[in-house]
Amino acid sequence: MKEVWGLKNWVSWNTTSAIMLIWLLFFKQDSIWATWYLTEVLDGDINNFWVINTKQKNSWLANYLLLQCGTVFDWIKQVVGNGKTCYFWSSKWSPFGNISKNLRGESSHTTGIPATTTLAEIWESGN
């Protein structure tokens, strides 16, 4: 591979830069960029990062960050708190990680728990 500007692997550089932006999004939400991304791309909810699909209206970079969710999922854990912003199926609230991946074969269809159900909603319904 040809070296350009002293960088040998542009793909690795690009991925590393994207992961740094995701880190800013989760841990430096007071930055202008993170506030913009949270509002415009994630519709005001940081938990949407794990479930939202790419959109044609988004820039290439905004969509690329969404596509990296599988790469960074194991590195970011969510504090449950009152459970109102923690999704049962997709948030990383359990010590076992993503519940949908952990309960192989089980899904929102077989359990009756919709994909957008929060932990607070499950608790309230007595399940």
Rank of each mutant, 00 (worst) to 15 (best):
V11I: 10
F88V: 06
V51N: 14
T16A: 15
N102A: 10
N9Y: 06
L7G: 07
I122V: 12
K57H: 08
F96G: 03
S125Q: 14
N63K: 03
T35W: 12
I76G: 12
W60H: 09
I32H: 12
K101P: 00
K77A: 13
W89H: 05
T39R: 14
N102S: 09
S90M: 08
K57I: 10
D30A: 14
N63T: 02
N47C: 08
M1Q: 10
P114F: 04
V80S: 07
G6P: 03
N14E: 12
S12Y: 06
G97K: 02
E3D: 09
V72L: 10
F88T: 01
Q56I: 08
W60I: 09
V80P: 04
M1A: 12
S91P: 00
F88D: 01
N14I: 02
L67P: 02
Q29R: 14
G105C: 00
G105H: 00
V80T: 10
L103P: 01
L119G: 02
V80D: 06
V72M: 11
G70N: 10
F88H: 00
G6W: 01
S94C: 15
I46R: 00
W10L: 12
C86T: 14
F49C: 02
R104N: 03
L67H: 09
T35V: 11
V41D: 02
Q78F: 05
Q78C: 11
Q29T: 06
W23I: 09
N14V: 02
T16E: 13
G83C: 08
K28F: 07
S31C: 11
G97V: 01
A34T: 00
E106F: 14
D45C: 06
G44L: 02
V11R: 14
M1W: 13
G70D: 09
W36M: 14
S108K: 10
L103I: 00
W60T: 07
I22R: 03
W10Q: 09
Q68C: 14
I22V: 15
E3C: 12
L61M: 13
V4L: 15
G126N: 11
L65G: 05
W89I: 03
N58D: 04
N47M: 05
Q78Y: 03
R104E: 04
V41R: 01
L42K: 00
I113F: 02
Q29L: 04
L21G: 07
F96H: 08
K101L: 12
S12H: 09
T110C: 06
L103M: 06
T54Y: 03
V80W: 03
S107D: 10
N47Q: 13
F26W: 08
E106K: 11
G6E: 04
G81S: 15
K2T: 10
W23T: 07
W10N: 06
T35L: 15
N127L: 13
K57W: 04
W93D: 02
T16V: 11
W33I: 04
I22G: 05
T71D: 11
N9H: 09
N53V: 08
V11N: 14
V72G: 10
K101V: 05
I99N: 00
L65W: 02
S100M: 13
T110Q: 05
F26S: 05
G44E: 01
Q56F: 06
L25H: 00
F73Y: 13
S108A: 15
V72D: 08
I52M: 14
K57N: 09
Y37D: 03
I122P: 00
E124Y: 07
W50L: 04
F26C: 07
L7S: 10
W123K: 10
S107G: 14
L38Y: 00
T16R: 12
C86I: 03
I46L: 15
